[in-house]
Amino acid sequence: MKYRKRFEELFFKIISALMTYALIAVLVFIIGVIFYKGISALSWDILLKTPKGGYYYGGEGGVLNAIIGSLYIASGATFIAMIIGMPAALYLNVYLMRYKRTQNTIRFLLDTLWGIPSIVYGAFGFAMMLFLGMNASLLAGIITVSLLVLPIMVRTFDEILSTIPKGLMEASLALGSTRCETAYKIMLKQGFQGFITAVLLCFGRAIGDAASVLFTAGYSDQIPVNLDEPAATLPLAIFFQLSSPIPEVRERAFASALILTTIILVISLSARLFSMRFSQTNIR
């Protein structure tokens, strides 16, 4: 009996430790593979030139069009999500402070919205585009992606706002500021760290998402200049180039994967750094 017990204890402890370390190993493995494959294919040409003679047929050039297109779409979408998402999160925490039930219902619905897959947003964006008579363009891509990241923005920001002590807000109200001023001057400042995290998270999600821009942003070999031109994006560049039969083009896909991974890693690490930096000056 005692042996069995001890064995069970040891067995499960080892298993669960193994599973945890396996996760770290998997992450290192994935990033290692991407870097190993990408480094050999990476060159200044790929970073700084647009494709010449068709991205699919192994012409010269690189993926600058996709890098710029991705940055445009991600920053545009993050900006729209910021304009709509930030006030919504503030409203939820300032005006609805007294209505716990409503607050929780709203959070619950937003979480559900977060779970909707990006392909559905893509299909919806496409339907909307046809309805409005637009073509696949930068603008359509930005709008679709902004819908996708909106719930993420609100929920992430809200998560930090909800931890701010109520007394701070009550003090501000007692000094005669309106709820609105309290929201923007007190809550936003105190929760700025959460806001930055939310923005960076949205940006990372927006730049990495392929299914929603597949229908809406189109693909082109040029760098988009106007909002109504189609734009290439990094995830789609990887996806299309990888399905090419020509080895050189596949190599370029690996290089693009490396670029995208690096962008994501930088965003993820800077989110951590910023959130530490900005929480130092908070009132506690």
């Binding site: 998270l201 990372g204 730049i207 990495g208 392929a210 990887i238 994967a257």
Partner: peptide, 13 residues
């Protein structure tokens, strides 16, 4: 965080 932030295309590759 990084695992959940990596884009799905990267997992595909």
């Amino acid at each position: 965080d990084i695992l959940s932030g990596l884009p799905s295309v990267i997992y595909g590759v």
